[in-house]
Design a protein around this nucleic acid. Structure first.
Length: 875
RNA sequence: GGGCAAUUAGCUCAGUUGGUUCAGAGCACUUGGUUUACACCCAAGGGGUCAGGGGUUCGAAUCCCUUAUUGCCCACCA
């Protein structure tokens, strides 16, 4: 078999993914084993894979593959989200391109277009995840608008309504004039920007005087219904109760007083527009002010805008300012920096708007969800996010769950009359009719009299049920699957959606299952470019994931992504990391090639091989414990790095070099067999990170049945560690380093054997002398009682090593080297002795620490002695 | 405006309860290398007053105070 020296990921990755699919390894059904469950954060159904998905899903796959190897019944449920506002916006845009306005077509027609779009683009992202190697249980793929999930959403709405937790309210909400829908507070992003602050004077009715107000939105003057001052403000005490004339519209409104007004800000005098500001609305309610809404749904002015009617609010702002100036009531403008709410989706400036919406009462629901995170029943990684979680949960507000969109779950409320309460909530129109006849006490009502609320539910109102609804645990709370898989183990998601999604899943978990939805939440960071900017389509700074995988292999990209991304930390992405991942794949590949190329013979095992293997087995166990510890703390980068170093340094650079047979010599069968077993263990612990490469090598090593595939192999068992052996090896490694250093200094090629004499002051074990012999290419290794003349020297601890030189030794250089080392050691001794002569140290420090200092002192003294002797011998 | 976190080598980060293993890792860098797995490699090496200042302690990267800088979250000041 001819095996190329370069590992070609592109040639093998699809092959193994197909193999895994064919043999159904990803599919899970409840059985005797303990389950290990992850539900995917469902990406937008029409979305495409970006770097954030790459990171997030790599992490999930690492966790799920490791769980599978550890013998759990691993189940990773994939799926997509209908993403109501995002998808609808895209469909609207697409229709617009075709010359169709959303307002010109019926709800049914629009939904047909939306479904067409979904069927056409839906699921692309899931196919892309397969390229990354994600081992999702594809048979379980769900969509938030599947029939069963939709029914779950409706059931929950009805249930919460019947519990009195859902109500309909006339409230000020966040209005997105582009999408023409309300948004929840969480969907509003506050962005700092500089606007103008306009100072405008209002004439006092029946007098010559004026009051001056400051506003950033002069166009809302047309909706003013009062002017307000602080009751404690002496400047205005004489005008409270009088009336002013609002410019342009000449409306006569009262001057009122309210503690809300900040005397220091602007002029201390505030205009009140209850329809367009939440504070103004509250003041308006306290003072029974009229509410005048001057805007249409698209943020153009309505008839209250008078001659500005039809203008967009931005244009109206400029024009009213001009008009005010012309009227001579605009005193001045100044720059003013403040935060403006914008829509997360459309980027439009949010308009506070009073409208009738559906709300979910959150306060009581939030309690168990808060407690169980604070007491670590649900663990956040990193834990620092508990702070912001608590902050939000303690101040949680009612959730505006209705959206003025078509794409989504239509609210199951049916109106039968014009009255505020003339509606019923029911699963079907038929059920609604019965309820309505009862409620209205009117048996003559017919289906035609019922009109379903046209709003749909917030997307997150389906996402918050995801860990339950994917197992159909809402409709059938006692079904086998929900009982088996729920609660899930880990959730891997971005901190940005902690409030949108994580908090609400926890809430619904306690409400509908009486327990937590997942045990751990791993918060990923944001993927940034080298300049620290967030990767985004608009900046064009995001690499194309599929291209990256072509270039570096999925395994290389996975390693690259995980190399430097501890939980909760942003990931400064650099393609060089993927290159490193690719190089590592090649390294492992070549280690396999080496082993694979050996000719096996029935000969005796060399001592050096035996001891090297014993050492590595202990080293492996030590690293395995370290790796398990990292995993338990969700430190995947550290787990990867420990694996990387074990394989590259300990396995390749040390073990294979120690056991490698001489050129064209065969290897003994015992060593070969053990090395294969070691390689297999290495592949197992590497598999979660590099699934394709490891399966490829695994299947090269031997002919395997489907049951023997690496993906379903058994994680290595833990065995006792021989710590002495590891320490002895570390010592020997230092000796070998010393030899290499001398070779380099003196330009002695490796093929030229040298002699090594050892003055064994340390009384170190000689276990690894056979290894030193091999890796140092030593022709004669001997212990001596006296210094060797005419030799180069180096020290490890207080052992002294001599390499006799045939040629001349540069005495000057040797003296210089020795003197430097002597000076350093004497300085070190001084600091140690200073510590030991301090009575308070000797009395207060633990005995162990004092003893170690004494040992340091003795070692330093011994070393100084040998250094001095060497210097003396050199003259 | 309120809260949280961070600041350790050129870069990205470890550093558990203060004390053997405390100043580390990977990458990058420098130097040498056609040793028959791998130049996507091997070997050797340089590099940090642990952000600044103060304090507690026999002893501080680690605990406390303070200053500076950065990042994130929350918040209705026109």
């Amino acid at each position: 078999m001819n095996i190329p020296s370069q590992y070609d990921a592109n040639k093998v990755e699809d092959k193994w993914y197909d193999y895994w699919m064919t043999h159904n390894y990803f599919h899970s059904i409840p059985d005797q084993r303990e389950p290990y469950t992850i539900v995917i954060p469902p990406p937008n159904v029409t979305g495409v894979l970006h770097m954030g998905h790459m990171l997030n899903n790599t992490i999930q796959d690492v966790l799920i593959r490791r769980a599978r190897l550890k013998g759990y019944n691993a189940c990773w449920v994939p799926g997509t989200d209908h993403a109501s506002i995002a998808t609808e916006a895209r469909v609207v845009a697409k229709l617009k391109d075709e010359g169709i306005e959303k307002s010109d077509i019926s709800r049914e027609e629009f939904l047909k277009h939306a479904w067409d779009w979904t069927h056409k683009h839906g699921g692309i992202i899931l196919e892309q995840l397969k390229k990354l190697g994600c081992s999702c249980d594809w048979e379980r793929t769900k969509f938030t608008m599947d029939d069963d999930l939709s029914e779950s959403v409706i059931n929950v709405f009805i249930d919460l309504y019947s519990k009195g937790l859902i109500y309909r309210g006339y409230r000020m909400v966040n209005w997105d004039p582009v999408a023409k829908t309300t948004l929840s507070d969480e969907e509003v992003i506050h962005i700092e920007r500089t606007d103008k602050l306009y100072y405008v004077k209002y004439k006092i009715e029946g007098e010559d005087g004026f009051v001056t107000i400051a506003t950033t939105r002069p166009e809302t003057i047309l909706g003013d219904t009062a002017v307000c001052v602080n009751p404690k403000d002496d400047r205005f005490s004489n005008i409270i109760g009088k009336k002013v004339i609002v410019p342009i519209c000449n409306r006569v409104v009262p001057i009122i007083s309210d503690d809300y007004v900040d005397m220091e800000f602007g002029t201390g005098c505030l205009k009140i527009t209850p329809a367009h500001d939440i504070n103004d609305k509250e003041i308006g309610e306290r003072h029974n002010l009229e509410v005048i809404d001057i805007l249409n749904d698209d943020a153009t002015l309505n008839h209250y805008g008078l001659h500005h009617e039809g203008k967009d609010r931005e244009l109206a702002r400029e024009d009213t300012a001009k008009e005010l100036e012309a009227l001579g009531v605009l005193i001045k403008t100044e720059d003013y920096t403040h935060k403006v709410g914008t829509s997360e989706r459309t980027k439009a400036v949010i308009e506070p708007k009073i409208s009738k919406q559906w709300f979910l009462k959150m306060a009581d629901l939030a309690k168990p969800a808060l407690d169980n995170v604070m007491n670590d029943n649900i663990q956040f990684h990193p834990a620092k996010f508990k702070n912001s979680y608590r902050n939000w949960m303690e101040n949680v507000r009612d959730w505006n769950i209705s959206r003025q969109l078509f794409w989504g779950h239509q609210i199951p409320a049916f109106f039968y009359g014009e009255g505020v309460n003339d509606f019923v909530v029911a699963k079907t129109k038929e059920n609604a009719l019965i309820l309505a006849q009862e409620k209205a006490d009117n048996p003559n009502l017919t289906l035609n009299d019922l009109k379903q609320d046209s709003d749909v539910l917030d997307t997150w109102f389906s996402s918050w049920l995801w860990p339950i609804s994917v197992f159909d645990g809402i409709r059938y709370p006692d079904n086998e699957e929900i009982n088996y898989y729920y609660p899930t183990n880990d959730l891997v998601t971005a901190p940005e959606i902690m409030f949108f999604w994580v908090a609400r899943m926890i809430i619904s978990g306690y409400e509908y299952r009486g327990q937590l939805p997942f045990k751990n939440v791993y918060y990923t960071g944001i993927v940034r470019d080298k300049q620290g900017r967030k990767m985004s389509k608009s900046l064009g700074n995001s690499p194309e994931p599929i291209e990256l995988m072509k270039k570096y292999g999925a395994d290389g990209v996975r390693v690259g992504m995980l190399m430097c991304s501890p939980a909760g930390n942003d990931l400064p992405f650099d393609e060089a990391l993927c290159q490193q991942g690719k190089a590592f794949a090649n390294k492992v590949w070549n280690a396999f090639r080496l082993i694979n190329g050996w000719e096996i013979a029935d000969i005796e095992q060399p001592k050096s091989s035996k001891i090297a293997i014993d050492w590595f087995e202990s080293k492996f166990q030590q690293t395995l414990i370290e790796i398990e510890d990292h995993y338990s703390k969700y430190r995947l980068s550290d787990a990867l790095m420990a694996t990387y170093r074990l394989i590259w340094d300990d396995f390749c650079s040390w073990l294979l070099e120690m056991v490698k047979p001489a050129y064209q010599q065969p290897i003994d069968s015992m060593t070969h067999k053990t090395i294969i077993a070691i390689l297999e263990n290495n592949l197992k612990i590497l598999h979660p990170f590099m699934p394709f490469l490891t399966e490829e090598i695994w299947q090269h090593i031997a002919v395997r049945t489907p049951e023997e595939a690496l993906i379903v192999a058994k994680w290595p068992e833990t065995k006792p560690i021989n710590k002495n052996l590891i320490a002895e090896f570390d010592f020997a490694a230092e000796v070998i380093s010393g030899i290499r250093k001398i070779r380099k200094q003196k330009n002695i090629a490796f093929k030229d054997a040298i002699e090594l004499y050892i003055l064994n002051n340390e009384n170190a074990a000689k276990t690894f002398d056979v290894v030193i012999d091999r890796l140092g290419n030593i022709s004669k290794l001997a212990y001596t009682d006296a210094k060797v003349e005419g030799a180069l020297t180096f020290r490890v601890k207080s052992n002294e090593y001599f390499v006799p030189m045939k040629g001349t030794i540069d005495v000057e250089e040797e003296i210089k080297k020795l003197t430097e080392e002597l000076n350093y050691t004497e300085g070190f001794l001084k600091s140690v002795q200073k510590k030991l002569s301090n009575e308070r140290f000797v009395n207060n420090a633990p005995g162990q620490v004092v003893a170690s200092e004494k040992k340091k002192e003795a070692d330093a003294l011994a070393k100084i002695e040998t250094l001095k002797a060497s210097l003396a011998s050199l003259g």
